[in-house]
Design a protein around this nucleic acid. Sequence first.
DNA 1: GCAAAATGTAAACATATCTTTACATTTTGG
DNA 2: CCAAAATGTAAAGATATGTTTACATTTTGC
Lengths: 89, 89
Amino acid sequence: MVCVKITLHFQRKGVIETTMPVNNNVKELRRQLQITQLKMAEDLHITRQTIIAIEKNKYNPSLELALKIADYFHVPFGEVFQLTGEDES
Amino acid sequence: MVCVKITLHFQRKGVIETTMPVNNNVKELRRQLQITQLKMAEDLHITRQTIIAIEKNKYNPSLELALKIADYFHVPFGEVFQLTGEDES
DNA sequence: GCAAAATGTAAACATATCTTTACATTTTGG
DNA sequence: CCAAAATGTAAAGATATGTTTACATTTTGC
């Protein structure tokens, strides 16, 4: 037996800027390394849209992607991602 | 105008054990502190199901929850979550 | 100042994360 | 041993994350 769900979704609106509980320094770190969004996306095997969304705080990366990003920049995790209201200790 | 999507979803089967690219030490750290799943869930304002799913590697926590969990245990992020094939340096 | 490169917007689609509810099984302590 | 506590399974619903495609706008370099 195959089980199926049917859902109605209201679409994410590009305009909405939600205040994220997670800060990230992806844009700054990427610029320090003089890397374009396109190159970074290709290196990480994701799309440029995902980089944009993260840099513009449309949404947070998954845990897996976040770990790969910190690795990519060769910095400790806390230097890239922090809960808002926290220092990177 | 309201935009709506209709999707068919194949449901996640509880049985399936996907090999996650992310390791976590939530169960070990929780046990070291002698904390039950229920107390931890309440403290973090999530459900016990979510704790179970993470401990049993059904799925990874979101980045936000992962950061909160590391905070909760008072340990560096890398001591709780690592990419598979990586040490916690 | 112009073309190319880089960055941004939009929207639909696909999948992953998290909740809720309801039981079932295992572990713990008296 | 037995009840209570802790842990586990299951499944459907809701929302967040990530991809794809197609353009629009801004920045860079010559």
